[in-house]
Design a protein around this nucleic acid. Sequence first.
DNA 1: GTCACTGCAAAATCTTTGCACCCAT
DNA 2: ATGGGTGCAAAGATTTTGCAGTGAC
Lengths: 142, 142
Amino acid sequence: MSCGERLAAELRKHGFRVTPQRAVILETIAHRGGHLTVQEVYAEARQRLPGLNIATIYRTVESLHHAGMVDLFSTTSHATMFELRDPANPHGHLICTICERVIEMELGLIQELGHIVASETEFELDAHHLTLFGVCARCREQ
Amino acid sequence: MSCGERLAAELRKHGFRVTPQRAVILETIAHRGGHLTVQEVYAEARQRLPGLNIATIYRTVESLHHAGMVDLFSTTSHATMFELRDPANPHGHLICTICERVIEMELGLIQELGHIVASETEFELDAHHLTLFGVCARCREQ
DNA sequence: GTCACTGCAAAATCTTTGCACCCAT
DNA sequence: ATGGGTGCAAAGATTTTGCAGTGAC
């Protein structure tokens, strides 16, 4: 089963119809991987499917988010970012407030942090989109 | 020295002119305390100083942020939030992704998390505006 | 055939910017 | 008197929404 077919099956499993728009959007997200903004997906996906409207991207991303297929997170700038949720690789994000680079954080570390926070507060971190802000090694040297 | 005078002195120390607009904006922030959006400050401060423009709030907040007097952080919705930086009480934020409530996190906990992250990555968390997303106790019960 | 989905256009937010005037220093 | 700060208006960017038509099921 190809990557596209797998995603289509995933869509149907969640009760979504598999439209050309959604196929292209999902393939774009899967192909680019990592961390994307709506604008980035729009720029790339419209080349593969001219006429694709940006409102469709927003609605698709929102739907996929509700279905648990993508995770959303905020960056220091104003755009909302998101990525495919891969059950095999849950992770978090370290975002550099200087260069805005996004670094992935291992599950083990997230769980460690989650346990500490849970033990000292009544708060339960979401391991699937834990996002921390700070300064990366590269920017700290400068 | 009153609260207003202290903030005015703080402004001058950073090389800012003390205008009526800035005085009102700072007093509003200090009075409301905690976590505010630009729109919230605008709504309240314009009542005290009619004619106050929202662009002034944005410019003031940006200036104060550069001077280290206020911290900015992102929430799940689109508005940027900020608060006065109080050197006597550095802390972080736990934001509930369901009710959007903002809970303060103690410095000790932040430092603990910061050490762990630093030891396992090359990333240095900013203790003055560490923000974590998750689900608060109240929402988890429902 | 249904109705979820899409494109389009318009609007709603949030934020930034150019410019002329004003006032804190 | 200087130039940093402000108001105003306009633009920019991101995101949402109403509506009519279309295509996946």
